[in-house]
Amino acid sequence: MSLSARMIFVLTMVGLISGSLLSVVGLLTTERIELNRLREIEAAITVVIPGTVTSVKLYEEEKFTVYAGQDGEGMALGYAVYASGTGFQDIIKLMFGTDPAIQRLNSLTILEQKETPGLGAKITDALAFLRFWEKKDLSRPLTLRKPAAGSPEELATSEINTITGATISSEKVLQMVNLSLERLRVIKQEGKLGKEE
């Protein structure tokens, strides 16, 4: 065999073996990776819409997805909105849940963030941040309480607490939620969320 023929032969063989090995690995793992992703979203929906048994994806666009949570009998319990945006430094992915009339915010959960550890990263902390997001009135846009209040009882019904030392991270999360709520109302008005309850 000439040298160039041998070169081509060896490269083809290496490529073939590697390709077939990888397609096996791909087959074995793809399903599970997809399952992990779905499971994470389902778990988050159950957190933000308590009592959810099944969930349906209603609407999807870039950086904004709406799910409906239903109880065992198929009764709508509310909407879960999955949104992503830029935080203090990098992407934040969050999910919040509302009642079917979009009048009340159940709670908020953060799925992914790379904020400053010890400061902005407290947005994932239940004690420092998330508990101040429970059961909020949505008839007005949510606002930020600054300086921070000590306990959820001190806040007004549409007020959210600031994390001391991480005002920007708190503001960004608030902005994302307010914008997503606006969008949610618009697409609901347009009838894009499917059946009315």
Partner: peptide, 8 residues
């Protein structure tokens, strides 16, 4: 659907 060949 060849995302497993991405790195290579």
């Amino acid at each position: 659907k060849l995302d497993y060949l991405q790195i290579v």
